[in-house]
Design a protein around this nucleic acid. Structure first.
Lengths: 134, 134
DNA sequence: GGTATGTTAAGGAAAAGTGTTTAAGTTCAC
DNA sequence: GTGAACTTAAACACTTTTCCTTAACATACC
């Protein structure tokens, strides 16, 4: 009830890895197979990813849906779209075009091919002009 | 695989609550009992707590175990212990005695009775002198 | 007292997650 | 090509979580 997402096993493996041990060395130390160490470590990393995403959801709770960038849109057109949508809401976006484009791309590089967006992206904005991409 | 900790149901309830709806109103909207809305909301809050704790673990991964404060120790003696242990490691603690005592107590108020520690506390420190209590 | 809001406990069925093994598959340096 | 480090897939037992119901309980407001 009081613990976090990671199991003791997962933390154990992460600690040993942080120390620089290989999966085989850890497997020997905790008496299991290296394949299992791999699985446990992977589960741990996945849990950490989930934890981050969960907290990001909290930000979007404070934020309003601004617009949806359609698949196929050019990165700079997306930025224009975001600025004009924000203006409609009377909110000033916290970023200039270049930073916005960078943030957008960094939010999920897999969703881009060169300058084009490959999947629809929901854009949220809060009162401070901070942006979130869902 | 790609989602966070919160289920769709949990997010749904949190969104409605953020809008100011009562549990009963939400129950009617999503066709269930108010008791269930309460349960789902509680699970959501618990998941958010877990997410936070999980990320805090990441900080302690960067940190080294400094010392263990034994149950029954006085708060100020604990602080002294932490300073001397850190000195042994050649790390300067980021806090003075008063702030340290406050941080220690705030880290988990339940573990204190007046100025005495009720349970063993593991203390971690990173290279910057930042402290974590486990 | 009655009403609205929220919490808690007990129980249950379905779904998801965990640790594990075995076996096969990378990738990369020597 | 060999070996070391790591990944992946399928399968299994086991535990936990989730969503749900019903019924009781606590607060607070009128």
């Amino acid at each position: 009830m009081k613990e976090g997402l990671l199991t003791e096993r997962q933390k154990e493996v992460l600690r040993y890895r942080k120390k620089g041990l290989t999966q085989q060395q850890i497997a020997d130390l905790i008496s299991t197979s290296k394949a299992n160490v791999c699985t446990v470590e992977k589960a741990a990393v996945e849990n950490i990813r989930k934890a981050k995403e969960t907290l990001e959801f909290l930000y979007t709770l404070d934020a309003a849906h601004l617009c949806t960038i359609k698949s196929g849109t050019d990165l700079l057109d997306a930025a224009k779209d975001i600025f004009s949508s924000a203006e409609t809401l009377g909110i000033k976006v916290k970023y200039d075009t270049i930073s916005l484009a960078n943030r957008l791309r960094e939010s999920n590089p897999e969703r881009f091919r060169a300058r084009y967006i490959r999947e629809d992206i929901d854009v949220y904005i809060n009162e401070d002009g901070e942006l979130y991409f869902g």
